[in-house]
Design a protein around this nucleic acid. Structure first.
Lengths: 136, 136
DNA sequence: CTAAACCCTGTAGTCGACTACAGAGTCAAG
DNA sequence: CTTGACTCTGTAGTCGACTACAGGGTTTAG
């Protein structure tokens, strides 16, 4: 298991070659070295880094935020407080988005309940009525 | 209050002129006619249509979906069932997004709780630990 | 009558996370 | 030794909802 070419890494990590080059442009990963012909050669443990990225994405972090997390992760002298702060900011962000969606869902629920569906034409549709500002 | 030029309409509706032209490209609005010089002239009641669009956006509908809603709204023979179906699909969509976000929030919450923050370095940070796949 | 303020079309840029080439060079199997 | 699979760089396209020009023509206030 020596240096991986980008195609092998892509297969191992289940990502496309283009995505890997894209991550490199963003500074998320880098090949350990280049071959004489300029081919990227990766150490196998970059796969761990890619898994880090995927897990962080699943938690809602953007690639830019993940770059910060990776930088902190690579600096043993850095404080866990910074990671915690990023995490709490993300929690706040997610909570705000949830609240927005909850508000929409409630409004839509109320309207859908009132709507008689196929027993009426659009003229009597309370959903369209609300969108047309018939109440308030 | 006769035909509005696009600038006046933009002011009245609190939208930019560019946005109005963009909505026209998408088929959401159309000027009643054009002046001799080719200027768009709108009937004042297009403002109601723009409010419809804004309300629907606030409920989470995309402009493409709003075009459908407007088409149904303009067809008195159409069934309210179609509007209800669109609404219920949107509710389902929003609920799925809420569930995804809830899952993220829960995971982040758990991690943030365990993290000692500034009392530790990143080496002992459980958040980074989790991202590195230390558990499971 | 002139200058500011308006309007037109058409094109391109923004954000984020990719995806898809084109055109060229390189490597590995048979 | 050839052919196919791989890799390189660089550029452009995708989605959605705008936003921002450039380079013209038109209208209106003073």
């Amino acid at each position: 298991m020596n240096p991986l070419t980008i195609g092998k890494l892509a297969k191992q990590a289940d990502l496309s070659v283009e995505t890997l080059r894209y991550y490199e442009r963003l500074g998320l990963i880098a090949p350990q070295q280049r071959s004489e012909a300029g081919y990227r050669l990766y150490r196998p443990d970059v796969i761990r880094r890619l898994r880090f990225i995927r897990r962080a994405q699943a938690l809602g972090f953007s690639l830019e935020e993940i770059a910060e997390l990776l930088a902190l992760s690579g600096n043993p002298a850095a404080s866990a407080g910074e990671v915690k702060a990023l995490t709490q900011a993300k929690i706040a962000d997610i909570e705000r988005r949830i609240r927005d969606l909850e508000r929409m869902r409630q409004a839509l629920d109320g309207l859908a309940e009132q709507c008689p569906g196929h027993r009426a034409t659009t003229v009597d549709c309370p959903i369209l009525g609300a969108l047309n500002g018939e109440d308030q």
